[in-house]
Design a protein around this nucleic acid. Structure first.
Lengths: 221, 221
DNA sequence: GCAACTACCTACTCTGGAGTAAGGCTACGG
DNA sequence: CCGTAGCCTTACTCCAGAGTAGGTAGTTGC
């Protein structure tokens, strides 16, 4: 839980704004991830951050803005990690594989970030919904792009090309759900989880039944 | 939106408890689905239900209990619909296909139910989480059972048999996510959506690229 | 007709928690 | 060593909304 690593225990004094903002955001992610947006209180966040409430308002604004800032930071982190894991020159299945690995790696390392992104943020109603929606859309678009590149390279089947975005949505959802499932079954490694999904999505269940298995190419480090 | 069909406009008087409970639950599902658990107010629910607040407390108890009752009713409805759509004698891919059709059919018909089940209920913190978790687990178990029957019938591949539940979780998540996507792209039919997922999950993306398509057997009505 | 019961309402209480007013302390430039 | 700017706190205000007290009006049974 690397977010908590340098959380202040004894109240440190007179730190520069930059540092405080980071501490506040870290605390906010923790608390939001535990209780959800509405049930989280500014008092608790301030306490966890080791600072008084008015500072939060001074630096990050009201509760809604604070939440939006959390979403924004964590989503950017996650997308950066996933995009960074993909190598442009590789064939599409390898790209997808690396993307999945990066994704599950991120979820494993930053559980709180993941919780706040996925579990809390769907609950519509707040204006921050915009922030979440846009991030989700970015993810789907990214996946769709990888899938579609497959299509244009190899002369895609009609069923797939018509529905790239829908399939991407399904895949993203499968990934999210599997990530949640993983939280309750932590004995698996990120690679194993990624591999399961890769097999399902690339070969399909019908092929799995016949014993076919997709494997990453040996070149991978 | 069939839940709203017999909502009272002019305050009707002295109805039997049974009827009122139904009205209250309908109203609660609507309001919870719009605002989420915390943001929904008992005042608004009572207003939508066309009854005063103390009646809600008298009949369905406090807010938490009311929410749990909503989840329970809607989840049961949904699972009943899905299970009812599956015919025991059929081969596994057909069973899966019918299950998916029933699921998306339900989501299309009872959008509010779906919203309250999926979007609102993951936000942990309340004790009602138990209710939701159990329903979700039931769904995953059901799917896993269908998938595993495939395995035992045909001598399953090792990769698939080890991970039935994980694959089921992925499939359920893909379904959920696709259902959400559908809410934003309502021009598709339930059958089309179900078909997309069926193809992805049964054939896999690799096969789709080669132009293969899974089709329901002609026997279907 | 009257007891007992059910359906139902108005009009509160009270608490949690968002957001703020008002000022104190430290550092640093001049 | 004084002013100004930035860091930080205590101690509030205020309101939405959960939950309730206490009472009225039909209805049913005898």
């Amino acid at each position: 839980m690397s977010l908590a690593k340098d959380r202040p225990t004894t109240r440190t004094k007179r730190l520069p704004r930059e540092v405080r903002e980071r501490q506040i955001l870290d605390a906010a992610v923790t608390v939001f991830s535990q209780h959800g947006y509405h049930a989280a209180s500014m008092d608790e966040i301030s306490e966890v951050a080791g600072i008084s409430k008015p500072m939060i308002y001074a630096y990050l604004g009201a509760k809604e803005e604070l939440f939006a800032a959390c979403i924004h930071r964590e989503a950017t982190r996650m997308l950066t990690a996933v995009v960074g894991g993909i190598e442009a020159g590789q064939p599409p299945d390898v790209q997808l594989w690396h993307g999945l690995r990066s994704f599950f790696g991120f979820v494993g390392e930053y559980r709180e970030s993941w919780r706040v992104l996925h579990r809390q943020s769907l609950t519509q109603g707040g204006p921050f919904t915009a922030e979440v929606m846009s991030m989700r859309q970015r993810a789907i678009t990214l996946v769709a792009a990888v899938l579609m590149r497959t299509g244009s390279d190899e002369g895609i089947g009609e069923a797939a090309s018509q529905s790239g975005e829908a399939l991407a949505a399904a895949l993203v959802g499968a990934g999210e759900s599997l990530a949640d499932w993983w939280l309750d079954h932590p004995e698996e490694t990120a690679g194993a989880i990624a591999s399961r999904l890769m097999n399902l999505v690339w070969l399909g269940f019908g092929n799995l039944v016949e014993g076919k298995v997709w494997r990453p190419p040996p070149s991978q480090k």
